[in-house]
């Protein structure tokens, strides 16, 4: 029972970090229609930005700020330099996907050239161990869950209760209608890339604090995020978070029965089951018209 509880808590911790990346990836995909694989390197850029700033003597909170701002900047630059010109010439989604993968590989290697491929750990977080009812975790793990929850709720509040948030949802629903009511879709795309990129950075920074990070740390994160978005239902931010939590918990509980190196297979297993049983995802839309 203790093992089950421990693995469940581990699953929630992992799931909450996955949720940050999945919600940000899902926000960009749902609004701009871009399968933004390069989000993986934006994720890594957040962690390395914070690591770089901390190495220059900045206090940890300021280094975290630099990492988040750096990730937002990289995300926006990718939109402006890579995706926007491709959309302008009506490039197919496949071409944009390949360009995204190419960007991921090029920038990942650029980070490796700058920082080497050795794992880097961001020090300075006051980490303490806690044991409650036989389940152990650290203050960093509590921070991971809390940050994820705050960012997730903040995003939902922003999307539903602000004028700009409604404009983002409008563009996600129908870019043409958005233009018809006077929304600048290009500006909304930029904003979504900035917000999505800034959202992914805290997860990367926390991972670098916990177990260290390498230049390719974004690859696994983006794969899990993509699976979580499909499991939860494309276009649904709560769906992406739910999908991420399910994958995190399933991967960790799965360790009770199968070796841990099969964790990635568990994520794809969840994807397969959901796609077969509910192709539009757990919280994906299935509209039914009412009678007049």
């Amino acid at each position: 029972m203790d093992l089950f509880a421990q693995l469940l808590v581990n699953g929630v911790i992992a799931g909450s970090l996955y949720a940050l990346v999945a919600c940000s990836f899902g926000l960009i995909l749902g609004t701009t229609g871009t399968f933004h694989f390069a989000h993986g390197v934006v994720f890594a850029a957040g962690a390395y930005g914070a690591y770089f700033a901390a190495g220059r003597g900045l206090p940890l909170w300021a280094a975290v700020g630099v990492g988040i701002a750096g990730a937002a900047l990289v995300g926006v630059l990718i939109e402006v330099v890579v995706y926007r010109p491709l959309r302008k010439i009506s490039a197919s989604p496949l071409v944009i996907l390949i360009a995204s993968l190419g960007t991921l590989i090029v920038l990942e290697n650029a980070i490796a050239i700058g920082f080497s491929t050795d794992a880097k750990v961001l020090e300075g977080f006051p980490r303490k161990g806690v044991i409650i009812g036989g389940v152990g975790f650290t203050t960093l793990h509590v921070t991971m869950v809390a940050v994820s929850l705050v960012v997730f709720l903040g995003l939902l509040a922003f999307l539903h209760w602000t004028r700009t948030g409604r404009a983002i949802r409008a563009v996600a629903t129908s870019p043409e209608m958005a233009e018809i009511v006077g929304i600048d879709t290009g500006r909304v795309f930029l904003l979504v890339f900035a917000i999505g990129s800034a959202m992914a950075a805290p997860a990367a920074i926390l991972i670098m604090m916990d177990r260290g990070g390498t230049p390719d740390m974004g690859m696994e994160a983006i794969l899990i995020a993509a699976i979580a978005v499909i499991v939860g239902g494309i276009g649904s931010v709560p769906g992406a978070a739910l999908g991420a939590l399910i994958i995190g918990v399933a991967q960790n509980l799965g360790v009770m029965q199968i070796p841990s190196e099969w964790q990635a297979a568990i994520a794809f297993g969840v994807l397969l089951v959901v796609v077969i049983l509910r192709p539009h995802g757990l919280l994906g839309k299935k509209l039914k018209k009412a009678e007049i």
Binding site: R169, A170, T173, M177, I180, L287
Partner: peptide, 8 residues
């Protein structure tokens, strides 16, 4: 067709 935002 749809001159509205169906998700809102």
């Amino acid at each position: 067709g749809h001159g509205i935002f169906t998700d809102l």
